[in-house]
C-alpha cells in the first residue's frame, strides 16, 4: 500500500464531490492518518462538471500544490466522460471507480483497473436525495474504501455519522456500507 494516496473526484455541481473528499479525509483522520481535502473552485454552477481532490498519508503532508497524477479517480456521473478524459494523469494501473449500472468490462480504459458501483441506485433505494437528485457521494466513499483499503468501512461510517446526525446520518452510512459490499472490480 502506498504511503501517499492521491485521489481525484469528478462529478457535477450538486453531487457532493467536495463533501466526499472531506469525508474520506475525516475517515483517515479517525484512523490517526493525515489528509488534505482539496476542492477545485471555478465559475461552476449546479450541474456543471466539477472536481475535487484528496491526499491521504500516514504522516503529515506539507505540500499544497495540486494533484496531477492520482492513484485513484472516482467518477460520480459517467456523463462526464463525454466532455473530458477522466483518466488524464492517472498512474499506470491506477484505479477508476464509476457510478454506473454497467459492468466494469463495459468501460474501455486500457492500462487502468476499473471498478463499478451503482451509487445512484443505492441512493434511490434508501431515499437519499439532495435538491431532487440522488445523493451518491457517501456511497462513492464507501466504494473507494473497499477497492483501495486506504480507510476502513467503519471509519467511513463513523465520519458520515459525525457529519449528519440522526436518520440522515444512518442512511448515508448505510449507503457507504452497501456500496462497500457491492462494488464490482474488473
Amino acid at each position: 500500500m502506498p504511503d501517499l494516496w492521491e485521489v481525484r473526484f469528478h462529478g457535477r455541481g450538486g453531487q457532493g464531490v467536495v463533501t466526499a473528499s472531506r469525508i474520506l479525509v475525516e475517515s483517515a483522520f479517525l484512523e490517526g492518518k493525515w489528509g488534505q481535502s482539496i476542492p477545485m473552485f471555478g465559475a461552476e454552477r449546479r450541474g456543471a462538471p466539477v472536481s475535487a481532490f484528496a491526499r491521504i498519508s500516514s504522516s503529515e503532508i506539507r505540500r499544497h500544490s495540486q494533484i496531477y497524477n492520482p492513484d485513484v479517480v472516482a467518477v460520480f456521473d459517467p456523463k462526464i466522460l463525454k466532455v473530458l478524459d477522466v483518466s488524464e494523469g492517472l498512474k499506470k494501473n491506477g484505479l477508476l471507480i464509476f457510478n454506473s449500472v454497467k459492468g466494469p468490462e463495459e468501460f474501455d480504459f486500457r492500462g487502468f483497473r476499473v471498478a463499478v458501483v451503482d451509487a445512484s441506485g443505492i441512493a434511490i433505494k434508501l431515499g437519499l436525495y439532495f435538491a431532487g437528485f440522488p445523493a451518491v457521494n457517501t456511497a462513492m466513499v464507501g466504494a473507494i474504501a473497499k477497492v483501495t483499503g486506504m480507510v476502513s468501512l467503519n471509519s467511513v461510517m463513523n465520519s458520515i455519522k459525525a457529519n449528519w446526525s440522526g436518520r440522515i446520518g444512518e442512511l448515508n452510512a448505510e449507503a457507504a456500507r452497501i456500496a462497500y459490499n457491492s462494488i464490482k472490480v474488473g
Binding site: 493525515w34 489528509g35 488534505q36 482539496i38 476542492p39 499544497h64
Partner: peptide
Amino acid sequence: LDAFILSHTATP
C-alpha cells in the same frame, strides 16, 4: 492565508 490553497482546503 492563500485563496483556496488554504481557505477551502481541509486538513486536520
